[in-house]
Write a protein that binds this DNA or RNA. Structure first.
Lengths: 186, 186
DNA sequence: GCATTATAGTTGGCAGTACCAACTAACTGG
DNA sequence: CCAGTTAGTTGGTACTGCCAACTATAATGC
């Protein structure tokens, strides 16, 4: 049984007692989206691992570099929350990037406790290269679609991101933010 | 400069010498897609980390369990290539899942070297629970859109996945499969 | 101005991810 | 039956990611 239809199909029916065609259609779309999103995530996870290793930084290091290049400079805490990471993890990621001379720690002018993280010229250049390569790939991908399809694709993914981010309860790495419906059995 | 317009913008012009409105539009869409996809990946990476830790398995372990539940049973090599992982990594992931009693290693009936990996009943149940929770979230996400928008979203992500997978050169974790345009400076 | 409290980062400890290289066991082909 | 291949495991290393404990600096309170 590959499609793995779960027990919670048609949750609206479960919650409200009414089961209609609209809800069924939504359930079908949900399953489709789930399968496609799962593939997408897996595909891109692999792509990233593969891609970035050519440039001697890891995926996480690349996220950090991206944040720093985009924002110009950040304190460690700011970086950690940008990446949804524990500050200790962020600190070690910065260690690695500093060792490789892509990021520099500097004193914060107004707060002696803080450090200001800045990408070095080499770091900015490296991220530019990586981003360019990603853009080339994504451009090739997009070029296979008609312009109007392309635009709606971008728009829809954007709305998906917005909807997804709105649901995130950022609790600094602590667990079980949402949902709870796994009361039956541990 | 937040949008980070790269040097390679309008690559068609760079390659062919002609620069027209079509190519410019494609470049603009590419940048948009890139930004949105980046956000999507980051958002979902976080969500996954958060979500799955509630069920005492990690993200990678969950991918492995998903493959095994979906496919019924796999050898270790098959699992490794499904997950785009080195076989040694796959072996240790299976170690963890076996320790937790979600997966069982069994002798292969026709090949004494192979092991057949199968999810246990508990493993299948666990994956079902996790998948259900993801579906609930995704259903909630989809329910914010009109049915026709929903359907095109699913379709478009599907095409995106297909296009992306088609480009993957699966070389068992070895590096630098695609592209090469970073000849200028190491 | 000095004790208290809070905040920013670092370090230690632990488990997991992920790679390569070296190894064992088992199959395959002369 | 012996060389070569294939399936998995184990050793080694580096990174990710968490919590907890720590240091140093700020901010607050009296």
């Amino acid at each position: 049984m590959p499609p793995t239809l779960p027990a919670q199909t048609n949750l609206e029916a479960r919650a409200t007692g009414r089961s209609d065609a609209r809800a069924d259609a939504l359930d079908a779309d949900t399953l489709d989206l789930h399968r496609r999103l799962t593939e997408l995530k897996r595909v891109y996870q692999f792509r990233d691992r593969d891609r970035i290793c050519c440039h001697d930084i890891s995926v996480t290091q690349c996220w950090a570099l991206e944040s720093l290049v985009r924002r110009g400079s950040l304190t460690l805490n700011e970086l950690a929350s940008e990446l949804f990471l524990e500050k200790s993890t962020a600190s070690r990621v910065v260690d690695a990037l500093e060792r490789k001379r892509y990021v520099r720690r500097a004193r914060h002018p107004r707060d002696g406790r803080s450090v200001l993280l800045k990408p070095t010229a080499a770091g900015a250049r490296l991220y530019g290269t990586i981003e360019s390569e990603m853009l080339v790939e994504e451009r090739r991908l997009l070029s296979e679609f008609d312009p109007e399809i392309r635009r709606s694709m971008v728009r829809l993914i954007g709305r998906l991101v917005d909807a997804a981010s709105a649901r995130i309860v950022t609790r600094g790495g602590t667990c079980c933010s949402i949902g709870s419906l796994s009361e039956e059995e541990s």
